[in-house]
């Protein structure tokens, strides 16, 4: 057989398998059941599920993500600088913290912060249960972002520090004016990634069960599987999934774009 004939034959087989799989799926799946469970028009139409999903769910998800990101980032700068400190105990503390929280499921941290710590330490978390859960998210996000930041700081060439110090700038001034601005630029793409992860992680707050008006997107969607126009179906979950994608997909595209631009700038 000729080489080109052989290649054409392989391609034909691959396409045939694909078509067969699609046809089989179409024939074997009960589409009316899928439609009733996933695409109940009572939920998709105006005045269906969208109102609560967006005005409560999406709104709270975005607020929680922003709060966790801002505080997590502040914590991360602190941890990253500690990890690079000339004082060894600071380095140990930061390393211990980062390894500890990166080694745990975020869910455990959230549960312990919401239900364990307030009782054990007789502590009123700011913002109540949601606040406690958010602090859990912040503690974890801070650990991950600290590692990202540390890598970014270390990616700034040593010559930059040397140039700044040789001009008489103090160590602190050098970090602030020369190293951090460059490190932040380097970590914008990975940090945007962390942001996307955080959006999805706010769904973990579902487990602490808060008041209706404070629920994030996943909790709201979950409520709508048992009450409201599409109760008894998963329609609201599919709708929530679409809303998540509307937020996360542009952000992941943005990361890809930023990375490409950074590569070109180099």
């Amino acid at each position: 057989m000729k080489r080109t004939t052989k290649r054409k034959l392989t391609d034909a087989i691959l396409y045939a398998v694909l078509v067969l799989a699609v046809v089989l799926a179409g024939a074997l799946i009960d589409w009316s059941a899928v439609k009733a469970n996933f695409f109940d028009p009572a939920g998709w139409k105006r005045g269906g599920n969208w109102g609560d999903l967006i005005t409560i769910g999406v709104k709270n998800t975005i607020v929680y993500t922003l709060v966790a990101f801002v505080f997590g980032f502040g914590l991360a700068i602190f941890l990253a600088l500690m990890k690079l400190s000339p004082v060894a105990p600071y380095r140990w503390l930061a390393t211990g913290y980062i390894e500890f929280f990166r080694g745990l499921p975020a869910l455990i941290v959230i549960l312990v912060m919401a239900f364990g710590v307030p009782i054990a330490f007789n502590w009123q978390p700011p913002g109540g249960l949601v606040g406690a859960g958010l602090i859990g998210l912040i503690l974890v996000a801070g650990a991950y972002m600290a590692e990202t930041l540390r890598a970014g700081i270390q990616a700034v060439p040593k010559g930059q520090t040397e140039a700044a110090r040789s001009l008489g700038m103090s160590a602190g001034r050098t970090t602030l004016s020369v190293v951090l601005p460059q490190a932040l630029r380097i970590v914008i793409p990975p940090l945007t990634n962390e942001f996307v992860l955080l959006i999805k992680d706010t769904a973990l707050l579902f487990v602490i069960g808060v008041q209706v008006g404070q629920r994030e997107l996943t909790s709201v969607a979950r409520d709508l599987t048992t009450s409201g126009p599409t109760a008894g179906t998963s329609t609201s979950l599919i709708q929530a999934a679409i809303l998540y994608l509307i937020i996360t997909l542009p952000l992941t595209r943005l990361v890809a774009l930023l990375e490409k631009r950074q590569q070109r700038a180099r």
Partner: peptide, 15 residues
Amino acid sequence: RSRIGIVFQSFNLFP
């Protein structure tokens, strides 16, 4: 150090 100017092989301007 502020009284000693130093010029490096790799320039080290702040980008």
